[in-house]
Design a protein around this nucleic acid. Structure first.
Length: 926
DNA sequence: AATAGGACTTGCTATAACACTC
DNA sequence: GAGTGTTATAGCAAGTCCTATT
């Protein structure tokens, strides 16, 4: 990557405008209509109403808010112009591309990047630093520039590019300019502007974290580098989606100012409302479902900026150096053995070969899809066998004798007594069905209603208590013993480098905890045995010994085109697998993470054209084209997920392509209200102002259909992604989420960071993080102790206010030369000078203000999960560069595991340090 | 073209590990 | 130093997106 110095964002300027470009229109026509009605809609049904309420105006801000009252459209949308009010935050976006757009300016971004690679990647950041020095020398960098015109995105061919290591790429932005660009510049929409900022409170930074680095072992990573070649990019601009921001949160949030919040909790309540949701499935929490509403106007236009940086990543592996991986291995491919097959047979597929061709996944550099050359590990560790406790549960009030197998399942249920699952009808039904199979036909236990698991539950509570009461020495010894047993399974050696294994523990048996209204919740997840497990390991190295005497693995493969070390079929859904992968800190995962962010950066070069094209297709006569255009717009603006089809034996949730008619309501004059259950049955409720043509198109898509019919009946994720790939090599729906999340962070950090202390800067970072979380609808349930914590804070604040009042009285008396009054206990207080009292008053005031701020932050974030976006969507190079530039310790942003996971991105910092290169990262690479 | 299979990534929650308060 | 609040991790469910088959 390149680093750029940009201090400013280069991009900022950009605009987005519509451009004209071409977009391929290929749309497919075809399609059948789907009929699908399949699942009926359930979801929504009712839902809407209810929840709406809450949403209110506020909306935005609160995002979650629950109840917003206002539903009315009004609120939300900000009007065209900017946005809204938001109080807080957000900003609206502008329109984007509208038809016209403007154009203008093109932007260029320049960039380039030098690359550097070093081998060293260290694992931990720290390490990195230290080692840096050493490595430095070794580092190599390269730069290249490429250029490519954006205009045409190349197709696949291009892909290669992506793969390439950043380094290779350069920005070319400048150059490019041309071509298409014409447009490029434009855009910016007039009003647009970006995002809003948020004001909101953030959480405080807490901070902490430690760091330390992990193991390190990793140093070397893989080499892959890509080849160079790349194309290039152009410039462009694109704005970010900031817009989105608004959506979700932004405006909304802003709007709401605070307080209101308190009321509800997001999830919960709403949920209720949601009830409506359809029939079947319900939201996850039942009662609690959050709602989030946000209103925002969306418009398009984002902007971006940034700079780049360099990543590194490239690590070398031993062998190879630079760029390509070792050739030798290539052949390895053959080594590969087949992949798992399922029921089917296992023919092996030699096919993999094909992969190389296109799959984006395959790093170019690596030979066809090859992920490793040598792989050594010790397999997996199994949970200990069940130890019967002998506690008898009651049936019709009488103790019942159970065999260990029967008791084991009864205990699984008993232990869940405190969870919501224990009272769910479906859960109980599925549990009883599976348990009865183990009890046998003639068992005395027939009906759940006569079962009393209390004795077992109480035994379990006692066991937990006992564990808690262990002395710290006992706990420590216990831990050490466990570590000793697991140590050998914790590591794998990949291409000679010791890497941490992620989930080396086989999942223990239990009752399935499906989210939302999962039809299979409560079913027994049977114990996994060695004979269920397929091991993948390098050829010629010792096969892990089966840990259970007398048993053996189901199969042992040597497939170096995949990254899993082992897998077994999911006992709940036998057609699916559970894999054992390396940990997030491994170079294999890091490489793929980097590729993901590089793809998002690349989208920056295409986004303008893509927006112009879909804007143009909002009014296409071809229905399929129109649906693709609107769906792409929603994915871009609202950060919706693609929405694959789901089976009937899964919770009834939807994504963009699977939205039902009932999930989107028209609110004149051009706002849309979205209300559905998304991934993990998390409620998505948002009122957004959209481009008039989109409003009109949605109305057309709804016409003549029932609530449960598919809104986008001519579309599914395959068609949508196939279309996106025509616009940019490797582009899929989820790339928009990564792109918009990262660009939003980058923009907000760039615009809002001010001179100040670290704490103030962290507030800005967390604010940006929150904005992204809202955009992506990352929610969390309100902690059980939330209201108690708030009350406690309120109490403390009131106490301070009393103290303040006393100080004021004392001050007044002191000024008159009188002694202070006695304290609450009747004891005399120290006689302080007026100046001293004034100082104390100021301190107390500051303390109160801080507490009130913290309280507001806590309230605002009670249903917002910041971690998910930080882990999966925010390009760590942006954070690293920002920390570097603003002198914020990276440990304040990334905890130990994130430092390890993003070791590949730390080089940026290094590089910067070494060369004095600046820092902002540019999303777009070139 | 639709479906199945397969390999990963994403995402929420429970729990462990700390940090803090009284 | 226990109880409690907070943050980091583990755990595992639920998506995405490709490729292979039917």
């Amino acid at each position: 990557m390149s680093v750029q110095a940009c201090s400013n964002s280069v991009f900022d300027d950009d605009d987005d405008g519509p451009v004209i470009f071409k977009r391929s229109s290929t749309v497919s026509k075809k399609n059948k209509s789907n009929s699908e009605v399949k699942k009926s809609s359930s979801q929504k049904n009712d839902g809407k109403l209810e929840r709406q309420v809450p949403s209110g105006p506020v909306s935005i801000s609160q995002k979650n808010k629950e109840p917003s009252p206002k539903p009315s459209v009004v609120k939300s949308p900000v009007t065209g112009t900017k946005a809204s009010t938001s109080s807080g935050s957000v900003s609206p976006l502008k329109s984007p591309v509208t038809g016209t757009k403007a154009s203008t300016s093109g932007k260029v971004s320049p960039l380039k990047s030098p690359v550097v690679n070093s081998k060293a990647s260290v694992s931990a950041a720290d390490q990195s630093k230290q080692s840096l020095k050493q490595n430095i020398s070794s580092v190599k960098k390269e730069e290249k520039h490429l250029v490519k015109s954006s205009a045409e995105p190349e197709n696949d061919s291009a892909d290669s590019e992506d793969d390439k290591p950043l380094s290779s790429r350069l920005s070319s932005g400048l150059l490019k300019g041309s071509s298409n660009n014409v447009d490029k510049g434009a855009t910016a929409s007039p009003g647009s502007s970006m995002i809003p900022k948020s004001k909101l409170s953030l959480k405080r930074p807490s901070d902490d974290s430690d760091d330390e680095k992990p193991l390190s072992s990793k140093f070397q990573l893989k080499p892959h580098t890509g080849t160079s070649a790349s194309k290039v990019s152009d410039d462009e601009d694109e704005k970010p989606l900031a817009s989105k921001l608004r959506l979700n949160g932004s405006s909304a949030k802003a709007a709401q100012p605070g307080k209101s919040n308190m009321k509800d909790n997001k999830r919960p309540l709403d949920a209720v409302s949601s009830l409506g949701q359809s029939s079947v499935k319900k939201p996850k929490v039942e009662s609690s479902i959050p709602t989030k509403v946000k209103s925002v106007s969306v418009k398009s236009e984002p902007k971006l900026e940034d700079d780049d940086q360099i990543p590194i990543a490239q690590r070398m592996k031993k062998a190879g150096t630079g760029t390509k991986p070792l050739p030798t291995k290539q052949k390895v491919t053959k080594v590969v053995s087949t992949p798992p097959k399922k029921t089917i047979m296992k023919t092996k597929k030699v096919t993999k070969t094909s992969k190389y061709s296109k799959s984006t996944k395959v790093p170019p550099s690596s030979g066809e899809g090859q992920k490793w050359t040598t792989l050594v590990h010790n397999g997996v560790i199994f949970p200990p066998p069940y130890k019967p406790h002998g506690i008898k549960m009651l049936y019709k009030g009488e103790p019942v004798d159970l065999t260990p197998e029967q008791e084991e399942v009864a205990t699984m249920f008993a232990v869940m007594k405190d969870t919501d699952y224990a009272t769910k009808e479906k859960f109980i039904e599925n549990f009883m069905t599976d348990w009865k199979k183990i009890l046998g036909k003639n068992h005395i236990i027939k009906e759940f209603k006569y079962c009393d698991f209390t004795p077992i539950y109480e035994w379990h509570q006692r066991e937990k208590e006992k564990k808690k009461q262990m002395t710290s020495e006992e706990k420590k010894a216990f831990k050490e013993e466990k570590l000793k047993q697991e140590e050998k399974y914790m590591w794998a050696i990949v291409d000679g480098v010791k890497e941490k294994v992620g989930n080396f523990r086989v999942e223990p048996p239990g009752l399935f905890r499906g989210r939302g209204e999962h039809p299979k919740m409560g079913k027994l997840k049977k114990r996994i045995l060695p004979s269920d497990i397929t091991i993948n390991i390098g050829k010629g190295v010792p096969v892990p010994e089966c840990p259970i005497p007398g048993q053996s693995w189901k199969e042992v493969k040597h497939d170096n085109t995949v990254t899993w070390l082992a897998f077994w079929n999911d006992p709940i859904n036998p057609r699916e697998f559970k894999y054992v992968f390396l940990a997030a800190s491994s170079s294999l995962k890091g490489q793929s993470d980097k590729e993901k962010y590089e793809k998002a950066r690349k989208l920056k070069d295409y986004i303008h054209t893509i927006r112009v094209n879909y804007t143009k297709d909002f009014t296409s006569k071809d229905l399929t084209k129109r649906q693709i255009a609107v769906a792409t717009y929603l994915i871009d603006k609202l950060a919706l997920r693609a929405g694959n089809e789901k089976d009937d034996d899964e919770a009834d949730t939807v994504g963009c392509c699977t939205l039902k008619v009932e999930n989107v309501n028209l609110i004149p004059s051009n706002s849309l209200e979205f209300d559905f259950l998304g991934k993990d049955s998390i409620k998505y409720h948002n009122i957004v102002e959209v481009e008039p043509p989109v409003y009109k198109a949605i109305g057309q898509f709804k016409t003549g259909k029932s609530d449960g019919d598919d809104l986008f009946d001519k579309l599914d994720t395959s068609k949508l992604n196939a279309h996106l790939k025509e616009l940019m090599p490797g582009l899929t729906a989820k790339v928009f989420r990564t792109y918009n999340a990262s660009i939003t962070l980058d923009e907000m950090l760039h615009k809002e960071t001010r001179v100040g202390d670290v704490a103030e800067k962290l507030v800005v970072y967390n604010s940006a993080n929150k904005e992204v979380a809202i955009i992506c609808n990352h929610q969390r349930s309100v902690s059980k102790s939330h209201s108690a914590q708030m009350s406690r804070l309120t109490e403390k604040i009131n106490e301070l206010k009393d103290v303040l009042d006393g100080l004021k009285v004392d001050l007044s008396r002191a000024k008159k030369g009188k002694a202070p009054l006695k304290d609450a206990n009747g004891k005399p207080k120290r006689n302080l000078a007026p100046e001293a009292l004034e100082r104390k008053i100021a301190q107390t005031n500051a303390k109160i203000e801080k507490m009130e701020r913290d309280m507001q932050t806590k309230e605002d974030l009670k249903t917002v999960a910041l971690g998910t976006s930080k882990i999966n969507y925010l390009d760590p190079r942006i954070s690293v560069a920002w920390c570097k530039r603003h002198e914020v310790p990276i440990e304040k942003i990334f905890n130990k595991s994130l430092l390890a996971k993003f070791a590949w991105a730390m080089d940026t910092q290094l590089l910067t340090m070494i060369k004095g290169i600046p820092s902002r990262v540019c999303l777009s690479s070139q």
